[in-house]
Amino acid sequence: MADNVFLILQDNEDARPIIEAIEQDNQDATIDYQPGMVRIECPGRLVVNRDSVTEFRGQDWDPMELQLNLVSLSGNIDEDDDYFALSWSS
């Protein structure tokens, strides 16, 4: 199995639609709530889609807004107007 990438977000209201979008779009993602933060892991690749977050939030979401609630991450980043993705190449 591919190595895990991870994304850690603050455990707050802004992060909720992002987490819901991740759950929907990444079947293998595991979500772990720790004090003050949420740690999301996924083997190989994890993607956050603009459309999905926008839908859950009911308001347009720019992937750059991830900056606001991001705590940490691991993986090679690929970001564009429509998505933010983390992956390992192996």
């Binding site: 850690i8 004090p35 003050g36 933060m37 900056q67 606001l68 991001l70 705590v71 940490s72 991450l73």
Partner: peptide, 28 residues
């Protein structure tokens, strides 16, 4: 910044966890 700041939250220090995670968002 991650387990220690999470620990700050766990010990009731709202101010430190907030600057910690705010700094960490740049850190990413």
């Amino acid at each position: 910044f991650v387990p220690f700041m999470s620990g700050a939250a766990y010990n009731g220090d709202m101010a430190t966890v907030t600057f910690g995670f705010s700094a960490q968002s740049d850190e990413a």
